[in-house]
């Protein structure tokens, strides 16, 4: 279907409407072109972006090459890749982001599926439950988890009541993953949900009438059509996780720090702004590479419209 869309977009022979219908709808076919006056409406937003996004970003990129008296330098980047600890943290960041992405999709997909395919009443309740965490601060939610997961917390207390051994799920990798997956899953659910709502339910019905069992109708029809949503959600979660700070910082162990923590450390403690900038640029580069892969595989248009 993706391929079909792309071909249509490139203007290859799609349907050839009869001359009559062409003429009849020709008037409304014309594209809307913005006039100069309406472009003025963009000025506040563009101004805001220029001051608070483009300028800081440019200054960070510049600063990452700042060698002080010696002018421009690649020193900060070479430090990053030669001191063993930094590549290790970079790899760890990618690994944890990937793991988070996979877990989020595994948790989010069935949830989004049920939501997209249930009655409006059930759907609204579920939607509310998924949206609810967004109305609470990340910090508060993270501390909430810490209260539950800490060694003397709720979870271990309950485990003790049932005679189960205590578990360590805080200040280590599992703890961090719990926090990350919890925070990121709503993004997956909402992204997938919007794509799944766009899938015509009759396609599955037709597949069944053509002899497919419910299971095979799902895997051959529904799942392939939901893949753009899976790709979009994965991209979103991967990018968000790779730069996430609060939750990994609070719930992860000292050995499991991510790039964002290192950046904060360089800024807060060592006041090494140039090196922090270089790490930030590396993080940005990872994000751009992900976008590039996504654009090649699915097409950015899909991300913007989130429709099948």
């Amino acid at each position: 279907m993706m391929r079909a869309c792309c071909r249509a977009a490139r203007g290859e022979t799609v349907s050839a409407p009869s001359p009559n219908t062409e003429a009849a709808i020709g008037g409304t076919r014309r594209k809307w072109t913005p006039r100069i006056t309406s472009l003025w409406l963009l000025v506040p937003a563009l101004g805001f972006l220029a001051v608070f996004f483009a300028y800081p970003l440019a200054s960070i990129v510049l600063r990452s090459f700042d060698g002080g008296a010696s002018g421009l330098t690649l020193e900060h980047y070479s430090t990053f890749f030669t001191v063993p600890v930094y590549p290790r943290i970079l790899w760890q960041t990618i690994e944890i982001s990937l793991l988070t992405t996979i877990l989020c999709v595994l948790v989010g997909y069935p949830l989004a599926y049920v939501m997209a395919n249930s009655s409006p009443a059930v759907r609204n309740v579920m939607l509310l439950m998924v949206m609810l965490p967004f109305m609470t601060s990340v910090l508060v939610r993270t501390y909430g988890w810490m209260v539950i997961l800490r060694p003397t917390g709720l979870l271990n207390h309950v485990a003790q009541l049932f005679g189960l051994p205590a578990v360590e799920l805080l200040y280590n990798r599992p703890g961090m993953l719990i926090g990350l997956v919890y925070t990121m899953t709503p993004y997956v659910v909402l992204t997938l949900y919007s794509v799944m709502r766009g899938i015509d339910g009759r396609l599955v019905a037709v597949a069944r009438s053509l002899g497919a069992s419910g299971w095979s109708a799902f895997w051959r029809i529904y799942f392939p059509l939901s893949l753009p949503g899976v790709a979009g959600a994965s991209l979103l979660v991967f990018i968000l996780s790779s730069g996430f700070y609060i939750t990994p910082r609070l719930m992860g162990g000292d050995r499991d720090q991510l790039l964002a923590s290192i950046i904060a450390y360089q800024v807060d403690v060592l006041l090494n702004f140039e090196f922090a900038s270089a790490i930030a640029v590396i993080l940005l580069a990872i994000t751009l590479v992900c976008f590039g892969i996504y654009a090649r595989a699915v097409g950015l248009k899909q991300l913007l419209t989130s429709r099948t």
Binding site: M1, A4, D200, R202, A205, V206, S209, L225, T308
Partner: peptide, 11 residues
């Protein structure tokens, strides 16, 4: 079965 919107598998 044939539906009004054809319900062809787009992919």
């Amino acid at each position: 079965v044939v539906f009004q919107n054809y319900a062809l598998f787009p992919h």
